[in-house]
Each structure stands twice: as structure tokens, then as C-alpha cells.
Nucleic acid binder design. Sequence first.
DNA 1: TATGAATGAGCTTTCATTCAT
DNA 2: CATGAATGAAAGCTCATTCAT
Lengths: 205, 205, 205, 205
Amino acid sequence: MSAARQRTRHDVLSEFRSAEIMAAARSVFAAKGFADATVDEIAQVAGVAKGTLYLYYRSKRAIYLASVRSGLEQLLARLRDELAGVSTVKDRIRAFVRTRLTYFDEHRDFFRIYYSEFTNLLNVLPASQRFVREMYEQQIAMLAAAIDGASDRGAMRPLDAGKVALVIAELTRGLNGERALRGSTRTVDEEVVFVVDLIWNGLER
Amino acid sequence: MSAARQRTRHDVLSEFRSAEIMAAARSVFAAKGFADATVDEIAQVAGVAKGTLYLYYRSKRAIYLASVRSGLEQLLARLRDELAGVSTVKDRIRAFVRTRLTYFDEHRDFFRIYYSEFTNLLNVLPASQRFVREMYEQQIAMLAAAIDGASDRGAMRPLDAGKVALVIAELTRGLNGERALRGSTRTVDEEVVFVVDLIWNGLER
Amino acid sequence: MSAARQRTRHDVLSEFRSAEIMAAARSVFAAKGFADATVDEIAQVAGVAKGTLYLYYRSKRAIYLASVRSGLEQLLARLRDELAGVSTVKDRIRAFVRTRLTYFDEHRDFFRIYYSEFTNLLNVLPASQRFVREMYEQQIAMLAAAIDGASDRGAMRPLDAGKVALVIAELTRGLNGERALRGSTRTVDEEVVFVVDLIWNGLER
Amino acid sequence: MSAARQRTRHDVLSEFRSAEIMAAARSVFAAKGFADATVDEIAQVAGVAKGTLYLYYRSKRAIYLASVRSGLEQLLARLRDELAGVSTVKDRIRAFVRTRLTYFDEHRDFFRIYYSEFTNLLNVLPASQRFVREMYEQQIAMLAAAIDGASDRGAMRPLDAGKVALVIAELTRGLNGERALRGSTRTVDEEVVFVVDLIWNGLER
DNA sequence: TATGAATGAGCTTTCATTCAT
DNA sequence: CATGAATGAAAGCTCATTCAT
């Protein structure tokens, strides 16, 4: 029991530090981008010494990738939950769009990083970053699966589910960029209504 | 007259150098991104000495911004031309989509740079980069103007022209990213048919 | 009595720890050299926490010097014993050569450290390392004393005992280096026969 | 011609810088050893900026290895010359011993580095340092060749030339270490007389 | 005593920019 | 105008040492 308690206290401390570093990293990377962010600044914002970062992460890049991955995992989990909660095609599309808009609205810092990471996808990828692309593909696949069969059942025009999912994903990403860029003049809900209406009109039989 | 001839020869040489530097810069920035590109490599690819770059451009960043600006100017000019050549709303939308897809298909290097530059738009902008955003807004404004009034004339559902233009612009940007990312398995024309069909279905009365 | 027993147990534990640290240090310093060895690795090999090392030694350098000193003390003690066991000049020279070759053959790790330490002797010495030189001089002095008077007694050509001792010491050090370097293709005994024969031929009347 | 002159001026400058850096490196590495020497200090002693070092050498280690190699090449060349100038076995041995003693007497800084480098030979060698060992073997091989056949001709006791050469090489290295260590109380010539007398007595028929 | 997380000085290396030729 | 050697600030990372537990 004593050992367990110690272990726990230890873990708590460790997780706390790790979370603080992650939060600092997100904030700094979001503000400066990967290249212009300095390990010094991340450490300072996290309130720890530079060397401490290296107890938790191998390198600057590792910190960065961890911040991308953790955000993406959370987003994926949320998408899964929300999609599972509704059953009609239109509701699923709405859930997908709303979840993505909401998530990035709530995590502006993460969005900046994620958005910028897309750039790198265009270049030759070191395997270590492959996951970014894979996790993006997973989101699309998730939506594609959710609307798959709708055409056959006559709930939608006869269109390829994968292509439709891709378009919807890109569109919401664009909207998120727009909202971050211009400043969101509309609420997430207003945005959702507008986009889903537009999309659904284009898909409906 | 002799002076004029010399002047001209001068200009020709100068423009030639400048163009070579620009081409080299595009190629290197596209491959490495701004931070990882080195002035050394650009000079080498351009076939000039490093110091020479600084006779034509104030700094590495200036070279970069010039490469973004020149591409954007060309794209804007093309959009203007293509939009002026057609008159119905659907044709204009199709022209807009096709021009953007075609242009980036032809200038992959520039697209990588442009795409990545969007990241920076999310951050506080030094005035020197403001133009990127402005020129993006111009593209949207151009399309918005092209479809403005369509709703009133009953040629389209009653939707805000600016919002619609924005959605279309983001959608094509997303598609370009997708094509660059996955490798374009479809021709530009096939892509245009699919997207315009989808959009128009969503907009049509 | 209880206190005494506790004290003893204490000492035993302490000596055990100290010995383990020393063994680990020898192994790591031998493999990596002083600069490239890390305190972390020594602690790991010793099976104790890093902080524990600092309970037994003041610093990394102190650990290092202790490992040099302990080896040198053992070597000196052996030389003393072996030289005391024989009486003719030739036997003493043979004992000296054999003991050094044997000792380093048995303690390769220590030899690497000792050998490398000679380098530092060439530089300005912090007092803390003076002992390395002194203990080397002691070995030579020991041999010098062992052959002193031999010239006078006509057992040897008239040569300065100190110089002769020095030459023999350097020669055996060189041979040890050679054996460690090339891999010992000959047994210690074969080596001894060859060298002592050569030396003695040079010294003999 | 103009081009040739420029080229030359260029080369001269470059060689001058390179030599200055090399001299500074030798001095600093000799005083501090590889690990404790800093690139900063070498640059300062050389009178150039830190970055300049990297125009001439890839890395700190490259600077170091260059300093070892250049010294060893010079020593080898000298040994070749001196050995070629004499013909009897005893003269050749004397030439070998004298050249090595003299060279290191004149290049104390280099000797410190070279001497210390021997330590590393005991450890697993990255290929980049293999040359140190090879060039040492060359010296021995050179002497072995110079005395080879002497036994057959009856000019020497029947001993293996390679082993004898090795012993002589190690002995002179030891003497050099000794001279550097204790401060040379004897002139090189006195040293040579003593050692060669000793050796020759041991070898002579 | 024993621990090992935390520290931060200090290191090597890179590269945009300058300027003498 | 063109060159490219020289510069030096700046950054990522390591690791001996400390100290709260």
C-alpha cells in the first residue's frame, strides 16, 4: 500500500509535469511555429529548467510531435463518440462538422499547430510523422463509414462515400482556418447550420 | 542612345538574374520550407554567389515573400481573365474552381509554399506579410462579385455571396492539398466535374 | 557490543558499496575514457542511484582518481613482494618485468585507465593527481634500489641504476600497450623471456 | 596570368589560415586534451571567428585528427629520409632513435597529442582514427625493414626484426614521455648515446 | 543513508548577413 | 556589379551536481 501510494504520488507528479510541458509546448508552438519556437522558451513557460524537458521528451521535435498526437487522439475519440450517438446520414454529417468546428474552437492553440503540420505532409515524410497523415485519414474513413450505404438505401444521391467524406473534411478544415484567420464572427452553431445545409442540399436525392 | 542600349542590356541581365533567383528560391523553399531552406542552397541552385542574392533582395525572408507574391499575382491575373470570359453563375464557379486547380497543378512548387504560408496567417502578422492574406481575400472577393446578384435574379438559392465564395475557395484549397498529398489520381477535369456538380446542387434553387 | 556489531555491519555494507562502485567505475572508465564516461552509467553498472555515488566520492574526478590509486597501490604492493623474493640482479629484473606484465594482463581495465592517465601527466598537474606520478616514480625507485650496487659488485656493466630502471619500466609499459593494442599473441612468460634476455644482454658485463 | 595570380593569392591566404588554425589547435589540444579543449579557445588562439574553423574543418574532431595526421606525416617523412642516409644496422637504429627523440623534442605540442592519442588506440576504433595506428605500424615496419637481414648476415644476434623494431619504438616512445614528463635533463644526443649503447649491446653478436 | 528528478552552465554546430577585393 | 570568406549570434542538447523526500 505504501508502495502503491508512493507510486501514485510519483505518477501524479510526473503527469503533472508532463502536462505542464505539453501545455507550454502547445502555446509556444502555436505562437511561433516549430522552427521559431525555442526550447528555452517552452521551458520558461512550463516553469521548469531546460534540462527537465529532456527528461520527458527526447528532443524538440519529440515534444512537438507529442503535442500534435495528443490533440489528434482527443479529436478522434470525440468524433467516434459523437458519430456513434446519431443514426441518420444528415445527423452524422452534422455531428462530424460540429465536432470538428467545436473542438478547434476550444483548442485554438492545437489548431494552429495541426494546421501548420499539414504543410509538412506535402513534403517527404520521415516515418515519425506519418501518423499525422494516418490520423487524418482515419477521420475521413470514420465519416465515410458513417455515410456508407446511404446512397444504396436511397438516402443520398449516388456518390462515392469516400470522396464525399473527403470534401466535407476539407471543407470543415477550411472553415476552421477561416474562423481562426478572420476571427469567428459567427457562432459554431450558425456555422454548422450554414455548411450542413449547403452540403446536404448538394447530397440529397 | 548608347546609354539607353546599355541600360537595356543591363535590365535584361538583371531581370534574368532575378528570375533565376526566383526560380531557385521557389524550388528550394518548396522542398525544404522556409526554415530549413538555406540561402547557400538557393544561391547554388540559382548559379550565383551568395552575396549576389543580397544585391537583389534585402534578406532571406524578402526572397521568400517575393516568391509568394509573384505566384499570387499570376494566379490573380488568371482568375480575372477566366472569370471575365464566362457569364452564368455556374460557369463562373466552374471557371474559378478549374483555374485554381489547374494553376496549382502546373505550379506544384508554388503551391507548397503558398499552402504552408497559410499557417503563418494564423499568427500575428508582420505588415510585410499582410499581402498574402489580402491577395487571398481578393480571390474570394472576385468570386463573390462574380456570383453576386445571382440570388436576386433567382439563379441561385438565397445565400450570402461572400459566404458561398469563401466556402468554394476553401474547398478548392482543400482539394489542391489533397491532390498534392495523395497524389492526383484524377485529372483536373474530373475533379472539376465532381466538385462543381456537388456545389451547384447545393446552391441551385 | 551491539553498537560495535552495527558499526561493523555498517562498514561491511559501506565497503561493499564502495567496492562495487569502484569496479563499475573501472569498467566504464576503461571502456569510454574519463571524458566520455558518464556518472549515470557508472551508477547503473554499480547498481546504485546516481546520488549515492556522491555519498562515497566528492565528484566524478574523485571516483576516477580513486580507481587509479587503488590499482596502483595493488601493483606497488605486488612489486614489493615479488622483488623481495629474489636476490640476483637478473632475477630481480625478471621479477619486475613479469609482475608488471602479469598484473596488467590480469587487469586490462585498470591498464587502459592507467595508460591513458599518463597523458595527463604531461600537462600541468593539479595537485590531486600528483600521486599518479609519484607512484610511478616509486616503482622505478624500487627497481633502481633492487639493482643498485650491482655495477660496483661487477654483476653488471657500469651504468646508472636509475636510468636503467627507467628504461626497463618504460619498456614494459610499452610492451603492455602493445599487448593490449595488437592483442597478446604471446604468453606473458614468452614475453618475459624475450625482453629479459634482450635487456640482460645489454647490461651484462 | 591574372587568374593564376588570383588563384595563388587565394591559396596562400587559405593555406595561411589553415596553418594558423592548425597551430592553434595543436597548442590548445596539447594543453587541454581533446575533451577539455573548446572550439572557442582554438578560434581565439587562431585569431579567427568560431565559424571560420568550420569553413576549414568539418568538426572539432576533424580539426583534432588533422593535427595528429599532419604531425605523423612529417615524422614519417623524416624517418624515411634519415634511415635512407645510413647503411649499417647500428647507424640505422641510431638514426631511428635520434629522429624520434629530436622530432618530439622540437614539437612538444604535437607529442602531447600523439601520446594521448595512443590511449584511444586501446579502445574500439572508429575507422576515422585507424590511421593513427597504421602510421605507427609504418614507423615500426620501416625500422624492421632497415634491420632485416642483419641477423642472417651475422651483423646481429638471431632475433626477429619485427620484435626488435617494436621494442625500440616502444622504448623511444617511453623515453619521449619521460623527457616530457620530468623535463629533459639530458640533451637528445646524450640520450641517444645511452639508449643506443644499451640496445646495441643487447643485439650485438 | 539512499534516491533520482531537477537543474542550468556550457558545449558544438549552423547559417543569415556583411564587406574587402 | 559579383564574389565568397569571414563573422558571431543563437540554438539544441548533455550531464555533473544538488537536494527534497
